[in-house]
């Protein structure tokens, strides 16, 4: 049987995963491009920052974001008083948390995608008079569709499974910040195992379906590019 706010929670979970993926796709292309091709000094530093969410406990990220968003820091006071952004315990708040938490899952596949393209591809475009931006948009990105697909799917799936960050920033407000993974925890705490199972099974099925779709699409794409 389905818990009372099953659909609301599921909608929120998918909305969070979809917006995180969409925003990260746009943000990560320039970051991955700079990391793949740049020879600038601060590169190891930026690479470390981007990869940090991979090794940090999500609660650490959540804790610091909670702190930053609160009125006990200068930045938090600026956000609240000057921009009117109360990020803690709100959907925009957990969205920012998800962006930080899932960043490496988008940047790393894209960076690898850029690095796997032969250097002569962008160079050929440059000698044909094409700017870096035109080359990125019309030569590089179309030839790294498997990497883009990988980044999108991994980010989406990873955001679905997020728990610690969302719990710390967003708490457990039904319809506002309660996503499926938190709902599972909540139902189990209240010994409602059937309800917990409904969420758990949904997440399991969703994750499995996404991965099957990924591997199928990558295969199809690879076949197309080398046909």
């Amino acid at each position: 049987m389905l818990p009372p706010d099953y659909w609301q929670t599921l909608r929120l979970t998918l909305a969070l995963a979809a917006s995180t993926t969409g925003i990260l796709l746009v943000l990560s292309v320039p970051v991955a491009y700079a990391l793949a091709y740049g020879r600038w000094r601060g590169r190891p530093l930026v690479e470390a920052v981007v990869s940090l969410p991979l090794v940090l406990p999500p609660t650490v990220i959540g804790y610091y974001l909670l702190l930053v968003f609160s009125d006990s820091t200068a930045l938090g006071r600026f956000l609240i008083n000057n921009l009117g952004w109360e990020l803690n315990f709100s959907f925009p708040g957990i969205l920012v948390g998800s962006l930080v938490y899932s960043l490496p899952f988008m940047v790393q596949p894209l960076q690898a995608g850029f690095q796997q393209l032969p250097r002569s591809l962008p160079e050929a475009a440059y000698t044909l008079g094409k700017s870096r931006l035109t080359t990125l948009w019309r030569v590089l990105l179309p030839n790294m569709r498997p990497a883009l697909l990988n980044g999108v799917v991994l980010t989406f799936a990873h955001t679905l499974g997020e728990f610690g960050v969302v719990l710390l920033i967003g708490g457990n407000l039904p319809g506002r910040t309660r996503v499926a993974s938190i709902a599972i925890y909540d139902e189990v705490q209240s010994l409602r195992y059937a309800e917990a199972n409904a969420y758990a099974l949904t997440l399991l099925a969703l994750a499995f379906a996404i991965l099957v779709a990924l591997f199928w699409l990558v295969r199809k794409n690879a076949a197309h590019l080398s046909a």
Partner: peptide, 10 residues
């Protein structure tokens, strides 16, 4: 410029 590996856009 014609590259040694041709560098055609796949």
């Amino acid at each position: 410029l014609v590259f040694q590996d041709y560098a055609l856009f796949p």
